[in-house]
Write a protein that binds this DNA or RNA. Structure first.
Length: 946
RNA sequence: GCCGGAGUGGCGGAAUGGCAGACGCGCUGGACUCAAAAUCCAGUGAUCGCAAGAUCGUGUGGGUUCAAGUCCCACCUCCGGUACCA
């Protein structure tokens, strides 16, 4: 009884592919073949093993890869592991087991699971970011970045040796030059705030801090300044933004990146703070002189995107950290300002910006002069202005900015409208009276010579006028900040940087790169992974012989920070191209041959950071001649999230009485309560106890009780996680693959359904029975499979299926391709005679989707002749698709009233003629006159009657 | 608040402006069986009707069109992201 038995078939074919290296990729694309680089976002090998979300994207790329190979393309389809990361280190702290041990154990498990699913990766190219041969090159790339400065004029990264040194710097000697270079490198050190948790004795990543408390333990977290490595990604803001244009990425992802980069255009304007008496003289002195890069010390410089509202600037605000705060604070205001600044310093950026809190601030006691009105306006300190954006100071225009308006209302500052809202604007009068805020475009008023013009047109006009007067200049700003690149962690790449020490063992401030022949800088062996209780990195605990090195007689201390997890994932796609190259990060010829990535599939959670960081590194490598394409990833697809099975949730009181979900609310303590305020608990309700009533689900036993139905994210705590191992055990890998592709569009969020897995398994069973004789003793062909050609209808189904599956696979519409293969199977299962050519074709079409069963059936059909995975993709015959008669809907006034059988290419006259003869149509037309006939050849005919 | 995405049978979903609900799950009935499972066949949006058939139907309200799930306007709900960037 040769039943379909995936548990036996699948491991056998996996072993076959591995033995024959079926999916090994040549070093270069085969001559004459199109190259296709198809990439998955590689996983972090967590201890929990593969999640069913992983195989979703991996199956999609596997189908595309197998399909491309069958169409004669050279495919590069690799897989690896993003294996640095916090969990392994935490595990080490807890158990004392080295992170490396756990990491590679997890990688082995992931590899086993991925192989179990039959993905056609070239496993010889597999890599892990924790491999020394890999991070040797991560360190080398860091040194390329370290060796690069950004030439703003030419918008290109160049070797630091080419950085022009100003004469006055050069005059001060080697130390000054080196310091000057350090200030211009794309990798530089700066003091930055880190999350230090004294209770845990460790520094935390931002993701580990929730509401100012540590995620684990809930201990308070302080922000303390520490010397950090930064990467100057802001230098590339312009190019990262511009480069998005040509990418075949989802529009939403591009927009997210654009918003993250946050380019805005406007003006920098200098406001005089030297007092009213000297204003005129100052103004005269400024005339005709362009604004310098550093503002003179008698002005407060602001950045604004709304120069058109300058006449309405009634006060100014500076950030609490602004360098001018102390100078601007008068004696009388000092106590208040000092207190306010101190209070603000306790809050993290996140706390300061979260929620729609009331705005707070204090008056400095000083005034600036509005350069266009000549009137003095007060300068306030408020934390709604961020020191890290623009100039850290703003001109406040309460009439035309909601934040400024709120602040002005709170502190009784004047609101002066300088833009008149359009006549049809609702709160027009309130705006004009200074009681509301209007942010739109309108007519400029109260602005001297600019009155009466459109506000958006005045923007540049006013900037030009001020620029002539030496008071402003056009400016571009980005929200993007430089990338804080160091972590105080053990399990990461060490920085290949050495800090020079003087004879006394004190740092001189000078640094040098670790020489290339000394890479990689390996992690030291630590006896103990527990935090040492100081905010410095764990590597400070390393043995002296690791920590200190002498080169050419100079003693150095190693950098002890490590790189963030992003580092390894920034460039892994390049290493796959040439994974064992010991001399270069990637061979130039191979890189030119395979790059860019043609299809990149992964979760939307990486829409911003990973994809932005990778693009940044890639552009630096491009500028420095290491790679040949300006962008790494040509086409990007985000797979949707897979949710747990749909759950029905009801609510019960303590006493066990049902409460309708309509009456359940959250109280102030966020308990669930019923209408009377009694606390209720959520309980799961079985599907069979629930029925639909109107738009809602209700309890069958009591239709007055409404039940919630929803699918939730899979989570351990919810207990709805689906384990791929169990699915493969119960249904087989082909069923898991096929189900995940059949659930719905790749990019959609969709709930899991184990019954649905059973459904596609049923389909594979049917395919099996269509071809295999299940009643025979040995594996052999069903007697229904015959060496005869298809009849006309079979040919139509066959060629229609080839066409649909080909087009849908190309378009990544896997769900509809599978549906079509099901229709094929339904049709041929009903046929007494199943022509061999049709059976061979369906097995070939199925091969990318369910490769194991396809190989097995191919063996049955062809008796072990070759391997279907490498077979040529079938072509369809358009001629087989044409029908000699179709049923054409006949509409009367847009409603289908009948169908007629006509030739597909019948013309309007013929169709009308046949339709009029049709009994039912004639009845509908009876006594009415046809005003108009709409005829769509081959689709329908519509009579408009009166 | 803002920015995305989505609302179609009991459920997942399908539909270049042209027959709404392909395909799958579930359900109902039938065949096979002593019986069950498995398999095969048929049916399955709602309402009315013995039937032929009719009417309604893609979140809501309006509009464009011979024709709207699809296009336009206004709104509602859900999901995801984001948080004072001047």
């Amino acid at each position: 009884m040769p039943r379909y038995n995936p548990a036996e078939i699948e491991p056998r074919w996996q072993a076959y592919w591995e033995r024959h290296k079926t999916f090994a990729t040549d070093a270069l694309p085969k001559p004459g073949q199109k190259k296709r680089y198809i990439l998955d976002m590689f996983p972090y090998p967590s201890g929990d093993g593969l999640h069913v979300g992983h195989p979703e994207g991996y199956t999609a790329t596997d189908i595309v890869s197998r399909f491309a190979r069958m169409r004669g393309e050279s495919v590069l389809h690799p897989m690896g592991f993003d294996s640095f990361g916090l969990p392994a280190e935490e595990h080490a702290i807890k158990t004392g087991e080295h992170p490396r041990v756990q990491t590679y154990r997890n990688i082995d498990n992931f590899t086993r699971q991925l192989k179990m699913l039959g993905f056609s990766y070239d496993w010889d190219r597999s890599l892990a970011t924790t491999d020394e041969e890999y991070f040797r090159w991560t360190q080398a790339i860091f040194l390329v970045i370290y060796d690069t400065w950004f030439d703003t004029e030419r918008q290109v990264g160049r070797p630091i040796a080419e950085l022009p040194i100003p004469a006055e710097v050069a005059a001060k000697g080697a130390g000054a030059i080196s310091e000057y270079q350090d200030r211009h490198r794309l990798a530089y050190q700066d003091d930055a705030l880190v999350n230090w948790c004294p209770a845990l004795g460790t520094v935390l990543a931002n993701e580990e801090v929730v509401d100012g408390l540590s995620e684990r333990g809930g201990h308070p977290v302080q922000r303390i300044p520490l010397r950090q490595w930064m990467l100057r990604i802001t230098a590339y803001a312009e190019r990262l933004e511009a480069g998005l244009e040509g990418l075949d990425w989802p529009a939403g992802i591009k927009k997210l990146q654009r918003d993250w980069i946050g380019r805005s255009t406007g003006a920098e304007v200098d406001f005089y703070i030297g007092g009213e008496e000297t204003f005129a003289a100052w103004q005269a002195a400024r005339r005709g002189k362009p604004l310098g890069d550093t503002p003179s010390n008698d002005v407060l410089r602001v950045y604004t995107t709304r120069p058109d509202t300058l006449y309405g600037a009634t006060y100014m605000v500076i950030a609490p950290e602004h360098p001018l705060v102390e100078r601007l604070t008068t004696q009388g205001q000092s106590a208040e300002v000092v207190a306010y600044r101190q209070q603000a310093s306790f809050k993290s950026d996140r706390e300061r910006t979260e929620g729609e809190k009331a705005k707070t601030g204090v008056f400095t006691g000083s005034h600036a002069i509005n350069p266009v009105t000549g009137r003095p306006i007060p300068i306030w300190v408020a934390d709604y202005v961020l020191a890290t954006y623009g100039t850290g100071a703003i001109m406040a225009v309460p009439a035309h900015d909601t934040r400024d308006f709120e602040f002005a209302v709170a502190y009784g500052l004047p609101v002066v409208a300088v833009i008149e809202p359009p006549a049809d604007f609702d709160g027009r009068d309130a705006v004009m009276a200074g009681q509301a805020c209007f942010v739109g475009v309108g007519k400029v008023i109260g602005s001297g010579e600019f009155d009466g013009r459109d506000s958006d047109e005045v923007k540049s006009a006013i900037t030009r006028r001020l620029a002539d007067a030496g008071l402003a200049r056009e400016a571009i700003n980005y929200k993007l900040r430089d990338w804080l690149f160091s972590r105080q962690r053990f399990w990461g790449e060490p920085f290949p940087v050495l800090h020079e020490l003087d004879a006394a063992g004190k740092p001189t401030g000078r640094k040098r790169a670790v020489p290339d022949d000394q890479l990689p800088v390996r992690l030291p062996e630590l006896a103990d992974f527990r935090p040492h209780g100081r905010p410095e990195p764990p590597l400070e605990k390393a043995a002296e012989d690791w920590l200190y090195v002498t080169i050419d007689g100079v003693r150095y201390k190693r950098e002890t920070n490590t790189m963030p997890q992003w580092a390894g994932s920034c460039w892994y796609y390049l290493r796959y191209i040439d994974p064992r190259n010991a001399g270069r990060l990637v061979d130039t010829q191979k890189e030119r041959a395979w790059m860019p990535v043609d299809l990149y599939v992964g979760g939307a959670e990486h829409a911003v950071l990973h994809l932005l960081y990778s693009r940044f590194w890639h552009k630096v490598l491009y500028d420095r001649g290491w790679v040949s394409t300006p962008e790494p990833f040509g086409r990007l697809i985000n797979q949707g999230m897979i949710l747990g099975e749909v759950e029905f949730t009801g609510y019960q009181t303590e006493a066990g009485d049902w409460v309708s979900s309509r009456d359940v609310r959250r109280d102030a303590q966020s308990n669930r309560v019923d209408g009377k305020g009694n606390v209720v608990k959520a309980v799961q309700v079985a599907e069979e106890d629930v029925e639909k009533s109107g738009d809602n689900f209700v309890l069958k036993s009591d239709p007055a009780i409404r039940i919630d139905s929803r699918a939730h994210k899979m989570s351990k705590s919810r207990g709805n996680v689906v384990n791929p191992d169990a699915v493969v055990r119960d249904y087989g890998a082909d069923s898991l693959r096929l189900y995940e592709m059949f659930m719905g569009p790749l990019e959609a969020t969709k709930p899991w359904s184990m019954a649905g897995v059973g459904g596609v398994r049923g389909f594979l069973d049917r395919v099996w029975r269509m071809i295999v004789d299940e009643r025979a003793d040995a594996l052999g062909l069903s007697p229904a499979v015959v060496d005869e050609p298809c009849d006309a209808e079979q040919a139509r189904v066959l060629h229609g299926t080839i066409k649909k599956v080909t087009e849908d696979t190309e378009g990544l519409s896997f769900n509809t391709a599978i549906a079509r293969m099901m229709e094929f199977t339904n049709h041929f299962t009903r046929c007494e005679k199943r022509p061999r050519e049709a059976m061979e074709a369906i097995v070939t079409l199925l091969a990318p989707y369910a490769p194991h069963i396809a190989e097995e059936l191919w063996m049955v059909l062809r008796g072990g002749e070759g391997c279907v995975s490498l077979r040529e993709w079938p072509a369809w015959d358009e001629a087989a698709l044409v029908q000699n008669e179709i049923d054409l809907p006949v509409q009367i006034n847009g409603k289908v009233r009948g169908k007629i059988f006509v030739a597909p290419d019948a013309d309007e006259a013929a169709v009308t003629e046949v339709a009029r003869r049709d009994e039912r149509i004639a009845e509908w037309l009876g006594g009415k006159s046809i005003v108009k006939t709409i005829f769509v050849p081959g689709r329908l005919v519509n009579f408009v009657v009166k």
